[in-house]
Design a protein around this nucleic acid. Structure first.
Length: 414
RNA sequence: GCGGGUGUAGCUCAGCUGGUAGUAGCGCCAGAUUGUGGUUCUGGAUGUCAUGGGUUCGAAUCCCAUCACCCGCCCCA
């Protein structure tokens, strides 16, 4: 018995209807913000991710699906999409196009991690990138866009967390200060933090061990180390978010795992998800293009939503079956009725109804099926009806049944 | 990659300290007189007890390994 490989899964009805709903709503929101879709390849040269995401990140160091192609080149399934989008931006000289480059994507990513609830080896991200300016107004709009998608899709009460991680100039100063302070206090912390104090001081800020919290609270805050430019940028972003009537929590401890982030970073969590409660992550990446070899600067900001997790959150709050409504279950009785039903079904579908035609030969069976499929109406047509030129329309919820002419049918179905 | 838990019918699960798998619930199929569902009643089908070894006269039950899923860590969407 061959089964789906570890960390991958089939998305079946009715869950697939939720996915379609999410994607339809998402595309509509993107359209309203004048974002356009970009579809990049699902695999790229390994070097793109190594340089873009960062050699030292967990993603690159141990989570990528990488193999040697027949010509000897190293290929990798994309673990995220920002690097690919920037690559395409540079390759196709999108900086020459008037206005900002506002792109979105929806598609699968691949990371070889330990599978868990809300974490898969093939997972889908909905992402957006706005490239071409450092202006803080764009940060605010991108965040608004992200929140708009979540709420319009039906995720209730998402929490927006906000931080600034500084830039190439001020962040290293902070990291050094943090490292120094940790040397004196790490002895009182958990073993993980003792290790992080040396390997990756920023990660200490993310520690969830309750006993460590007082120590962490007393550590230096990145916000005190922002240089004047970064600080002004952050202040403007905050005021523009408030102007948009968005609520957020400042989290100086919010450090993101990808090397390319600078200045604004943000994350959205959702209560219904357990340990993998992060549903969206994003931030600004002004130096990324240059690190990929671009001669022209391409400052930008973007986010990506974990579509699997968003769908999961929505499914906890709503009934997936409701998205797959069947309007009319057509029940033809007899050979003549089957032929008659074919054209009737066509016309009803063209009028916007969801129609299924019964293949049951017994009326009783057909009605049982109509009930199980939760059809709004059963439409019975047999010899009697064809002869009389009427259709027997039964409302499945109330049980009422009436005979209607062809002309009366459309309005009765509304 | 590390730690813990789980794995019995389509689904949710019983199965106590080893003795031929459950009238279990839901679902599915058929019927309760000829063209009408939802409630009720009756009958029926379905399992290499995750996989592979081992202990034993005998293993779903004990042991080992593998795989998958779940929870946590690491990290992240």
């Amino acid at each position: 018995m061959i089964k789906a490989v570890r960390g991958t899964r089939d998305i079946l009805p009715p869950s697939s209807a939720v996915w379609n709903h999410v994607e339809a709503v998402t595309r509509e929101v993107f359209r309203s913000f004048h974002y356009h879709e970009i579809r990049t390849p699902i695999f790229e040269e390994t070097a793109l991710f190594a340089r873009g995401v960062g050699e030292e990140t967990d993603i690159v160091s141990k989570e990528m699906y990488t193999w040697d192609d027949r010509d000897g080149s190293s290929i990798t399934l994309r673990p995220e999409n920002t690097a690919s989008v920037i690559r395409a931006y540079i390759e196709h000289r999108l900086d020459q196009i008037p206005g900002l480059t506002k792109l979105y994507y929806i598609g699968p990513m691949f990371r070889r991690e330990r599978p868990q609830k809300g974490r898969y080896r093939q997972f889908s991200q909905i992402g957006a990138e706005c490239i071409g300016t450092e202006a803080p107004a764009v940060d605010a709009e991108v965040i608004e866009l992200a929140m708009e998608i979540l709420t319009r899709c039906g995720a209730q009460n998402p929490t927006l967390l906000l931080n600034s991680v500084g830039c190439k100039k001020c962040r290293p100063v902070f990291v050094e200060a943090l490292r120094e302070r940790l040397q004196s206090v790490k002895g009182t912390m958990c073993t993980d933090c003792q290790r992080r104090a040396d390997t990756n001081p920023l990660r200490v800020l993310d520690c969830k061990v309750p006993e460590d919290q007082p120590v962490i609270d007393a550590l230096p805050s990145i916000l005190d180390y922002l240089d004047p430019e970064c600080s002004a940028h952050f202040e403007t972003v905050k005021s523009l978010l408030t102007a948009r009537e968005l609520t957020f929590e400042i989290r100086p401890r919010l450090v993101r795992g990808l090397d390319y982030y600078m200045r604004t970073t943000f994350e959205v969590t959702h209560g219904a998800l357990g340990a993998q409660n992060s549903i969206l992550g994003g931030g600004r990446y002004d130096g990324l293009a240059e690190s990929l070899g671009s001669k022209v600067p391409a400052p930008g900001i973007g986010f990506s939503i974990g579509e699997d997790r968003l769908v999961m959150a929505i499914e906890e709050q709503t009934n997936a079956g409701d998205l797959a409504k069947l309007d009319v279950f057509l029940v033809p009785m007899g050979a003549a009725a089957v032929k008659h039903a074919a054209l009737l079904a066509r016309d009803l579908r063209r009028a916007g109804n969801v129609v299924e035609v019964s293949t049951d030969h017994k009326l009783k069976r057909a009605m049982e099926t109509a009930n199980k499929l939760k059809a709004r109406y059963a439409l019975i047509l047999g010899d009697n009806e064809i002869e009389a030129g009427v259709y027997a329309l039964k409302n499945m919820a109330t049980g009422e049944q009436q005979n209607l002419t062809r002309e009366q049918l459309p309005s009765a179905l509304l």
